[in-house]
Design a protein around this nucleic acid. Structure first.
Lengths: 115, 115
DNA sequence: ATCAGTGCAAACCATTTGCAAATTA
DNA sequence: TAATTTGCAAATGGTTTGCACTGAT
């Protein structure tokens, strides 16, 4: 089932359930959820919450701190390292006395294929 | 009611409901939700989804693109401009042919008072 | 009398869980 | 047969909605 995650996109449980249906691989939505939460625990998939509040899942086993550039046309996701944030760290400490420990970031745009 | 938003923290509807209760201002949870969705529509409050999936609201009427530095100890939120992201834009285009259009970011750390 | 604001209970929807049936080792 | 996976239905929890009620203009 993790096979599906070769999609390189953020998909909701419902999305996955539908896709599986088309491939004639009937699988209860419940099972999809259960598999997803397992994969999350194993660190094989990343999650993010859609603006609707739904949870979206992406196959991503990369341990290192990184971010995702999401194509707003096709949904394709690619990974990006963030060295740049270091500047924030300094700026925040100097200007607002805020000690930055961690951060999350999402990048939206158009991938090479969709431009 | 928007008075409460002087809290400068992300609060869930339930949080707000409780806080109001302590101040002896009984208000149905329903009303809290209704007020919040109004304020969101008016652009007076920003939302983010807690890791639990709950929605959290922050009074923030700043139109300009900016980000929030959230104190992991007291929850205090302060605003940060992000000039730095420009570097990403260039890097992404040059290295991965990804045309960055927009982004979101959350910064976690300790505020001046909590360090 | 009107109309926005409020409460309550029911409805909704994504997600989780209990339990029994099905599948695999 | 024991252990694991699966499905169904019911439960859960946050959020929304229908509708009747209150209060202010």
């Amino acid at each position: 089932m993790a096979l599906l995650q070769a999609e390189r996109k953020y998909l909701t449980a419902a999305d996955i359930h539908k896709l599986l249906g088309r491939r004639r691989q009937r699988l209860a939505l419940t099972t999809v959820y259960r598999t997803l939460q397992l994969l999350v625990k194993l660190g094989a998939v990343a999650t993010r919450s859609e603006s609707t509040g739904e949870a979206a899942y992406l196959f991503c086993a990369n341990d290192e701190h990184h971010h995702h550039a999401i194509c707003t046309k096709c949904g394709h996701v690619e990974e990006v390292n963030c060295r740049v944030i270091d500047d924030f760290k300094q700026m925040l400490l100097a200007r607002q006395s805020f000690a930055l420990d961690d951060h999350s970031m999402e990048l939206y745009g158009r991938c090479a294929a969709c431009r």
